[in-house]
């Protein structure tokens, strides 16, 4: 498995995969947006306001998913000391923070007209805000050290500590009563969302996922080029 994570091999295969990922992302997001805004029906209770869902829910899923990737990469980096895993974790963080911010703000914009409030401190909303702070804390911590390996180590530990928040986010709506409603899609039993709304939602969600994969590959390639650049400059310096 680590064969693909060798930096040179990674540059090789990611360069070939990238255009396909980018094209698939563009198609899915365009189709998803069209279906969400023009084809999907209004909700029987929420009317047209339900169209916020097609932004909010994929962003919420990605907020947790990206954190999962970040924590898993951090574990790999800590246990096997693999530099590409550190890069994967570090380059995931700004993307995850972006998805979380989008989830929080779109949720607020949805809560005001439907629930009658921009924000409440219920278990779901609070745990997602904590997730946002975890991303910011991770980014700050990784950059707080002069020596990159130490920053990476500290960040990896924080990422792993924060992983306890993921089940709290997922199950907060089942464990405690909250203003936020329980899950409509990833639940025991059939989804409680009509197929005409579920399909656009899933297409948007896959589009968001591929968007993340595409940008992660781009950012990891940038980081690997930066590492190579540092090595070349060191050689120049030593030669001079």
């Amino acid at each position: 498995m680590f064969r693909f994570a060798n930096p040179n091999r990674f540059m090789n295969w990611s360069g070939k995969l990238l255009p396909w990922c980018a094209a698939a992302t563009a198609i899915l997001l365009i189709v998803g947006t069209y279906l969400a805004l023009f084809v999907a029906p209004p909700d029987y209770q929420q009317g047209e306001a339900v169209r916020i869902m097609y932004v909010h829910v994929p962003a919420a899923w990605m907020a947790s998913f990206v954190y999962g990737v970040m924590a898993a990469s951090s574990a790999v980096a800590l246990i096997w000391r693999h530099p590409v895993a550190d890069i994967a974790a570090q380059q995931s963080a700004p993307l995850g923070a972006g998805f979380t911010l989008l989830c929080l703000v779109s949720g607020s914009l949805w809560g005001e007209p439907m629930w009658g409030t921009w924000w409440v401190w219920d278990a779901r909303l609070t745990s997602v805000l904590v997730l946002f702070f975890l991303y910011l804390g991770y980014i700050a911590l990784v950059n707080a050290f002069d020596e990159p390996t130490r920053g990476a180590r500290a960040g990896a530990i924080l990422a792993l500590v924060g992983v306890v928040n993921l089940p709290i986010i997922k199950f907060s709506v089942d464990w405690w009563n909250t203003l936020h409603q329980p899950a409509s899609v990833f639940r025991i039993g059939a989804p409680t969302i009509a197929a005409s709304m579920l399909w656009p939602l899933l297409i948007m969600a896959v589009g968001f996922t591929l968007f993340y994969v595409t940008l992660l590959l781009v950012r990891m390639r940038s980081a690997l080029m930066a590492a190579k650049l540092r090595a070349l400059r060191l050689q120049e310096f030593q030669a001079a």
Binding site: L37, P42, G47, E48, A49, R51, I52, V55, H56, A59, G98, F99, L101, L102, V105, S106, L109, W110, E112, P113, F211
Partner: peptide, 19 residues
């Protein structure tokens, strides 16, 4: 957007800005 324009469009607009 059925009277919800001032909530729906900022949400989508922010998605465009963030992504």
């Amino acid at each position: 957007m059925g009277g919800y324009a001032r909530f729906v469009w900022p949400a989508w607009g922010l998605a465009v800005i963030v992504l």
